[in-house]
């Protein structure tokens, strides 16, 4: 019989409590228990970054994180970024600069970029490349992705 626990955490600004098995991954919890399917499962082994979410503001890989280990922490997913139903500056920049092709890596790319832009207001190209070093785009749209992050940083700064 799978051991379960009551998991309390803050998800996208709201406190929640859910009954989760000890062996449940954070990505499964987000997608299947809370219905936030914006977070994607890619390689399923911490190698591609598609499942990136923020835990206490830092980018983490939800496919290699156990839900049981994030008790009491603050989780943010792609669903938290839109403001009053409108895309955030970062989301808009990915859309307008064509930083999104098939879109599968996009939620992870955007969450990793979001973590960067919270600490670096005007990141250089190199800094952006390092911050997105753990995110793989199989459409290889990296040039446009980096342009999108630069555009968002400029828009937020102005």
């Amino acid at each position: 019989m799978t051991h379960k626990r009551v998991l309390s955490l803050t998800l996208n600004g709201k406190n929640r409590q859910d009954l989760v098995p000890d062996n449940m991954l954070l990505v499964e919890y987000l997608r299947e228990v809370t219905g936030n399917t914006g977070t994607k499962q890619g390689c399923d082994g911490g190698e591609c970054g598609a499942c990136t979410v923020l835990i206490d503001g830092e980018p983490h890989l939800s496919c290699i994180t156990l839900a049981a280990t994030v008790e009491g922490r603050k989780i943010e997913t792609i669903e938290s970024l839109a403001v009053n139903g409108r895309m955030s500056a970062l989301q808009r920049a990915f859309h307008e600069k064509l930083g999104t092709q098939c879109g599968y890596c996009t939620p992870g790319m955007i969450m990793a970029s979001e973590a960067l832009l919270r600490t670096e207001k005007k990141p250089s190209k190199d800094t952006i490349r390092t911050a997105l070093g753990g995110n793989i785009c199989r459409c290889t749209g990296y040039v446009k992705i980096i342009e999108a992050v630069e555009t968002a940083a400029e828009e937020v700064a102005s």
Binding site: G49, T52, E58, I64, A112, T130, G134
Partner: peptide, 9 residues
């Protein structure tokens, strides 16, 4: 080491 998501954990 690895990527940002690995270093955070």
């Amino acid at each position: 080491i690895a990527g940002p998501g690995h270093r955070a954990a």
